[in-house]
């Protein structure tokens, strides 16, 4: 199971990649595998503000809808138009072109409250670290 070492994770299976004061957010490989084929992605508008652990959007698979929670608080500075057009990118490249939104952080310290890669691996029941 892919859990990249350069990301932080939420217990609800979102990941963040922090670059300066902007965090890119997506759902994990584990999450997309649990969901199955993603067929619809609903994201907040650019400029919207989100609070940590509040609802960020919805990812729908063929069988069910699943809430996505904001792993960090801030302002939506970009939503991934490509993933709205091609929801299957969430399955194909969960850590790449399947990202969901970019958030300008209101509190960079929040990132520290998220799970490390090792902690996330333990959270999803994986003990061995990935090969990275």
């Amino acid at each position: 199971m892919s859990v990249p070492d350069d990301l932080r994770y939420s217990k609800e299976h979102e990941w963040v990649r922090v670059n300066g004061d902007v965090a890119t957010v997506g759902i994990t490989h584990f999450a997309q595998e649990q969901l199955g084929d993603v067929v619809f992605v609903e994201l907040p508008d650019q400029g919207a503000s989100v609070r940590q652990f509040s609802s960020l959007g919805v990812v729908e698979s063929v069988k069910a809808a699943s809430d996505v929670y904001a792993p960090v608080s801030g302002e939506i500075v970009e939503r991934n138009a490509q993933v709205v057009e091609k929801p299957e990118l969430v399955n194909q490249e969960p850590y790449g072109n399947g990202w969901l939104v970019k958030v300008r952080l209101t509190d960079t310290a929040e990132v520290g409250t998220l799970l490390s890669p090792a902690d996330y691996r333990a959270h999803i029941g994986e003990t061995a670290p990935s090969g990275a």
Partner: peptide, 10 residues
Amino acid sequence: PIQYPTGIVA
């Protein structure tokens, strides 16, 4: 079986 590793869409 609801699906196999192939996935529902495939």
